[in-house]
Design a protein around this nucleic acid. Structure first.
Lengths: 214, 214
DNA sequence: GTCTATAGGGGGATAGAC
DNA sequence: GTCTATCCCCCTATAGAC
């Protein structure tokens, strides 16, 4: 594990600490002492703390988004005549994210997932820009796919439901708080099971009858 | 607006800045200059930054949770012989939170709501303790109510679905990011409409058939 | 209760030796 | 590429005058 080069050690430690404490609360000194490297190495390899934050995200986000697009391409290739069922699109969106947590090559556990959850909640301008750059294209592809598979939904209803779906996904990548309420009866290590449950929760909400004024 | 006393001015400014930038990134100097009060006033009135954070939350959370319990009591009083429909319980849980944003006595808009979203994502120990103290009893009450109204659901399925529901609620209190994808077609000021849409999204997921191994 | 002043520490970033 | 040393800033908290 100490065979990694300095740049990788910094990324690994920064990822872990950002996920645990947040960006502002994690100092460059925290990171370098955790990584057993020199303080100046961060500025040498990454120029600034902001650019380090970006690199930490990009390293994980890019492969996940590639896999999402690959799965969506596959689904659309199978359904050339009619739009695919929303359930399949939901699965293509959430599965690569949840699976990334249990990739044995990463050894990340909940760390990666809390990092994404935190990004969703950050409101600083730089975070917004970063998010747009890393996620914009994928979001647009999936919105188009969902729109075609839910053609009868009124536009406002459609976007609200997509937004609620993103909420489920963003919040549930961190499964720690679930243990606080479930006294350990939920197996948080069974990723494929979590994916199934999440798809089965989201799909009926997406495909429900239109919301009427009550 | 400048008629408020020092303590209230500090709470108002702290709430606004915590929501916008997070706890760690908001300094006591930011708060006192926004509030037009002296730096030392924070330590005089609140002792420390941590206790200020707690007070900011408690001021909003306590009335919201009281209203949630009141609505749940009301629902259960109407349904003494059979458990209420999950839909009614969902509404009792989400409506007070979403309505708090548009309370004209508070003039908070999205600020209050982003604050709650951020609390959900904070992982520091002190936040966990605070959350437990302010939310523990309410969560237990609602879990019991949901359990009775969903008696056929396997236990793990039940808790996962409750967790997904919390995700929708926590994420969707900040409606800013919705505008990024919906090009303004969603009316984020119509609180009762948002509540209806959210209840209609969550309920089918809660009441769906059990998740089977696929 | 509110102020000024300051203690005492930690932060990001960089210069320059090796 | 990696180190030490340091600049200069902002931070929380408190002491003590008013």
């Amino acid at each position: 594990m100490d065979l990694a080069d300095t740049k990788t050690k910094i990324l690994d430690s920064a990822e872990k600490l950002f996920a645990a404490k947040g960006f502002a609360a994690t100092s460059l000194r925290n990171i370098t002492s955790e990584a057993n490297v020199n303080l100046a190495a961060i500025n040498y390899h990454f120029d600034s703390k902001d650019k380090l934050i970006y690199e930490v995200f990009a390293r994980r986000m890019i492969p996940i988004n590639k896999e999402r697009i690959r799965l969506l391409d596959e689904i659309e290739a199978k359904n050339v005549d009619q739009p695919p069922h929303p359930k399949e699109i939901v699965r293509a969106l959430v599965a690569p994210l949840l699976r990334a947590a249990n990739n044995p090559d990463l050894y990340l556990g909940d760390i990666l997932l809390r990092l994404f959850a935190r990004l969703h909640i950050e409101s600083e301008e730089k975070m917004r820009e970063m998010f747009k750059g890393l996620m914009g294209a994928v979001i647009q592809r999936f919105i188009q796919a969902f729109r075609k598979s839910l053609p009868d939904l009124e536009e406002a209803d459609f976007f609200w439901r997509v937004y609620f779906m993103i909420g489920v996904m963003a919040h549930s990548v961190d499964t720690q708080k679930l243990n606080l309420i479930s006294h350990g009866c939920c197996d948080t290590s069974d990723v494929e099971g979590i994916i199934d449950r999440m798809v089965n929760f989201i799909t009926p909400g997406l495909t429900a009858p239109a919301t009427k004024k009550e």
